[in-house]
């Protein structure tokens, strides 16, 4: 079971490394959005609060441009049957979730580096708060976007539908992470954000359990 999940993850990773289908485009996407923000706000002094919000805007849209690929590419190429014949649905789900987790942490890492380099007013005071927002936020982001990717892979208008469906589901998560990022700039202690951490963690758990229970229905018709 675990080794099968790992095998699916490795397959996706290897395929990604070989085709560079999502990765290059994703990195460029991050660069483009951040430059866009820089151009649009040239000469303005932006508060740390505003920048915290914008950081998650960048992360959200980058995720939306890359995380649907795992399912959409299987659907587009018709390799879904290959996987359906090889293993249980839940194995596929967790394999893809793992892949998206790695992808989102990659995105977060890259975005944050780019952000810290370009946005002068973005000064994080409490790194532990900031890091836990990134990590737990990434977990939640990957969990919700994976199941929604599975849904939209079966719909007709895949690209535009993805952010539309994901946004409302992700909003409680995004509000919480934005809030936490702001707190980390203000220099809050980790203990003060305990409520936030609990929300983020339970969001991840709830979404993963629901997805696990529902994935069978999406995967096989």
């Amino acid at each position: 079971m675990l080794s099968s999940i790992w095998a699916i993850f490795l397959k996706d990773l290897k395929s990604e490394i070989r085709t560079r289908y999502a990765l290059n485009a994703l990195l460029m996407f991050v660069v483009v959005t951040i430059s866009m923000i820089l151009f649009a706000t040239a000469g303005e002094v932006m508060s740390g609060e505003l920048l915290s919000g914008l950081l998650w805007v960048v992360i959200f849209f980058s995720a939306m441009s890359g995380l649907s690929r795992t399912f959409v590419s299987e659907e587009d190429r018709g390799t879904v049957i290959f996987l359906q014949l090889a293993t249980r649905p839940s194995v596929v789900y967790f394999g893809k979730l793992l892949f998206n987790l790695v992808l989102i942490f990659g995105i977060n890492f890259f975005v944050v580096i780019a952000y810290l380099l370009t946005m002068e007013n973005f000064k994080v005071k409490s790194f532990d708060v900031f890091l836990s927002a990134l990590i737990l936020g990434g977990l939640g982001l990957a969990s919700a976007s994976t199941i929604i990717a599975a849904i939209i892979a079966k719909a007709n208008t895949k690209g535009t539908l993805y952010p539309v469906l994901s946004f409302p589901v992700l909003l409680p998560l995004l509000i919480t992470t934005i809030n936490m990022t702001q707190l980390s700039i203000e220099g809050a202690k980790l203990a003060e954000t305990f409520g936030h951490l609990r929300i983020l963690f339970s969001y991840f758990v709830v979404v993963v359990i629901a997805s696990y229970l529902l994935f069978d229905y999406i995967w096989k018709e």
């Binding site: 849904i151 229905y217 018709e221």
Partner: peptide, 27 residues
């Protein structure tokens, strides 16, 4: 409703929108 309008095959529409509404509802 956007999702429902984006899928033609009735069973698929029903299944996917059901899953979406459940996922959305748990959040």
């Amino acid at each position: 409703f956007v999702l429902r309008s984006a899928i033609e095959v009735e069973e698929r529409k029903a299944t996917l929108s059901a899953v979406y509404s459940i996922i959305a509802f748990v959040t």
